[in-house]
């Protein structure tokens, strides 16, 4: 078995090692973490014939540049519309390519998207925490942040020329600006007109956007009275309203409990493409019933699984 090694020539902030995540530990204060855009991450793996959750790298708008020091490995890139180059050669934002010793891969922000994923036909060596290499951003536990100057090793590195080429970016992997949500679980703390303002208004993404959450700018959504609600569990996708009436959508590295009321919770399925929006983009929320949320999720998940199956069949 051969290895490929890379030197991190440059890594922006919030570039991390991720895998499928670490579910099941929220009762200990540990969110699942894992990729912000789980679908693109899975596609990047399946394009190489990997299991959908194999460890890879999440690249933020900060960008990433890797210099291959030794060996050769085929890799896939999928996610936002980033600019991807090997040396001077431009690739598509979604591509499978082989990189050899002496070449440099550069990924930087392009026309759209906030996150993109890099996966390998081989095993990225990374630290494990509680059975997962997903990085929990604020603690750095798990595979960890990718830092400029560090060395990355891919063991069992293989070259798969038959996979190489551009990949189509499915339309549902593009940024999503209309988010389906179910009201609650604390919508009762808001007056009817405040709920109407939430579902009837547009919200702008601020640059307070990281793996924990995304703060929005829009109408002030004040709860009915000053609140002292006991802290309660939070899910990824919770729309939390702080004391000054500002909405934040909680994401991969969210806190597991908190005392701010949650006016609504976004469907898990919509979060992957929501996080591909950028600060300044405008989004809106559409409230649906819990049973309709389940029906929609089953439909979407079925389509996604079928897409992955077709990809792995053709790969």
């Amino acid at each position: 078995m051969t290895a490929a090694t890379f030197r991190v020539a440059f890594a922006g902030p919030h570039v991390t090692v991720q895998d499928g995540g670490r579910p099941g530990l929220m009762r200990y204060g540990v969110p699942a973490s894992g990729p912000m855009d789980r679908k693109s991450f899975a596609l990047a793996n399946v394009a190489l014939g990997n299991p959908a959750h194999q460890t890879g790298i999440e690249v933020s708008l900060g960008g990433l540049s890797l210099q291959c020091l030794s060996g050769a490995v085929t890799l896939a890139i999928a996610g936002g519309g980033f600019i991807v180059q090997i040396g001077e050669r431009k690739l598509g934002a979604w591509a499978v390519i082989t990189i050899c010793a002496g070449q440099t891969l550069t990924i930087r922000p392009g026309p759209w998207g906030s996150w993109t994923y890099l996966t390998f036909t081989g095993i990225l060596q990374a630290k494990d925490w509680l059975g997962s290499q997903a990085t929990h951003g604020s603690s750095g536990f798990g595979g960890g942040k990718i830092e400029t100057g560090q060395t990355l090793t891919i063991t069992e590195a293989r070259v798969m020329e038959n996979c190489e080429g551009p990949m189509p970016c499915p339309v549902w992997a593009r940024p999503l600006h209309l988010l389906r949500c179910v009201l609650g679980p604390q919508d009762r703390y808001f007056a009817a007109e405040t709920i109407a303002a939430f579902t009837g208004s547009r919200f702008e993404l601020t640059d307070a956007f990281d793996r924990m959450g995304l703060r929005l700018r829009g109408p002030v959504l004040m709860p009915r009275a000053a609140l002292a609600i006991p802290s309660e569990p939070i899910l990824r996708g919770s729309v939390q309203i702080s004391g000054d009436g500002v909405a934040t959508v909680l994401l991969s590295d969210h806190q597991t409990t908190g005392g701010y009321p949650k006016i609504a919770t976004v469907l898990s399925d919509d979060l992957d493409s929501f996080v591909q929006c950028r600060p300044g983009d405008v989004v809106a929320f559409r409230a649906i019933l819990p049973e309709d949320a389940i029906t929609a999720t089953r439909l979407n998940r079925g389509r996604f699984t079928a897409f992955l199956d077709r990809m792995s069949g053709s790969g």
Binding site: G24, L25, M26, R27, P230, S231, E232, P233
Partner: peptide, 23 residues
């Protein structure tokens, strides 16, 4: 059933929507 998260006065029960539902 996926996971449960106990807090002061409430328990969150997360489930797989492909297998079951709220009711």
């Amino acid at each position: 059933f996926c996971e449960a998260v106990p807090a002061f006065v409430n328990l969150l029960v997360e489930f797989d929507p492909l297998t079951t539902d709220h009711a």
